[in-house]
Design a protein around this nucleic acid. Sequence first.
RNA 1: GGAGAAAUGGCAGAGUGGACGAAUGCGGUGGUCUUGAAAACCAUUGAGGGUCACACCUCCGGGGGUUCGAAUCCCUCUUUCUCCGCCA
Length: 424
Amino acid sequence: MLDIRFIKENKDFVIERLQIKNFQSEKIVKKIVELDEERKKVQTNLNDTLSKSNKISKEIGFFFKTGKIKEANDKKKETFILKKTSQTLNQELVKIEKELDFLLVQLPNLPHISVPVGKKPEDNIKVKEGGKFPILQKNSIPHWEIAKKYNLIDFELGNKLTGAGFPVYIGKGAKMQRALISFFIDEAEKLNYKEIMPPLMVNESSAFATGQLPDKEGQMYKITEDNLYLIPTAEVPVTNIYRNCILNSEDFPIKNVAYTPCFRREAGSYGKNVRGLNRLHQFDKVEIVQISKAEKSYEILNEMVDYVESLIKKLELPYRILKLCGGDMGFTSALTFDFEVFSASQEKWLEVSSVSNFENYQANRLKLRYKEKNNKKTKLAHTLNGSALALPRILAAILENNQNENGIKIPKVLRKYTNFELIF
RNA sequence: GGAGAAAUGGCAGAGUGGACGAAUGCGGUGGUCUUGAAAACCAUUGAGGGUCACACCUCCGGGGGUUCGAAUCCCUCUUUCUCCGCCA
């Protein structure tokens, strides 16, 4: 969430920037500023009251010790009203803080100054395009037919076992998954990302801290009996490693890479764009996460974008990079680049990665801070993450783009992981 | 799942109702001494709110309670350890 001090000092700026995200914040911001003033007043009042009763308590202690029982008992009477007052003030304070918090979590992150104005995906700005478009033969088929033809993925079997959106990978199909995962992790390790294998379920605090709650409650699978959530992305457990941490200057850079399955309910999705691997309830993803100092985060964002681009290049897929417009950006992000690969038989761009800088928005909830040398004050860190990469759509594009009469050609970089060059 | 024990600063560990935000040791930082280092010695060393800065307030696993006053007593939750049971 946004830092309340920042909101107070930059009221108009906050309102103006949030309009880029098509969020009308004037009322909430005004209310927040008012409530915080109120909070301060009540808090000061409460502090004074507590200070007085602390002082009296000490006096009473002294009287008892020196045997002045009568004086002590007289003093006791004085505390009665102070106690009542502090109880009332405390209740008031808790109420105000709750309300303040309720309002604060409703405000999305401010978009970076470079974020384009826009409401729909069409308003995103293409910043780069690369790779070669494949020339397919006449009888080329979409990946779900390829998957069936070569017995790589069984969607109906997934239906039987679990339901729609839970495919079963078989034989070379399964092998492709493992190959992609290993390839992505090995590449990340070359750039000194440390591999993490986190739990696949998280508690409420974790889901809240990275912003999935309360925003995306309905999109996560919940285990009600134990009050846990299946992770929608590795971002949640990995970023939460740093919850409630105060880092030192020398801890940076913090670079983590994690492979996990991801679980998403995708409530509200339907139709053509959920066909095959295009949209699943369970899918595999390798995620990169970085924690940085405030002044470094945009430099790191660029580095992460370059890295994701290098992966797609190595897989020899046609791609484009989009800078998301205000209306298409996530709630918690300040700047997001989306990567799309072209899936030739579907003739569709498929989103395979989203790389974002959250600035201190997540860190504020995470209470993730750091200290500079020779400075006692803590500062909020910046968090960044990106998919590197999500598997299903990459696989879809590989299957569709690399098909010919002999079968499916495996990208060179994957062959040492698959131990085969062709699916036939 | 059952029985018992425990949770205190970066770490170890004392503290069982009053001057305790917390002894002591280790570690960190600054200094003295030294050509330099080590040792020794001296000083300093948690977080949040608040303030121009102080003052002041809160925090001893989380939440609640008793009391004029709680690290200390009570309730509750969580976690860890030991023993038993079950088990990949």
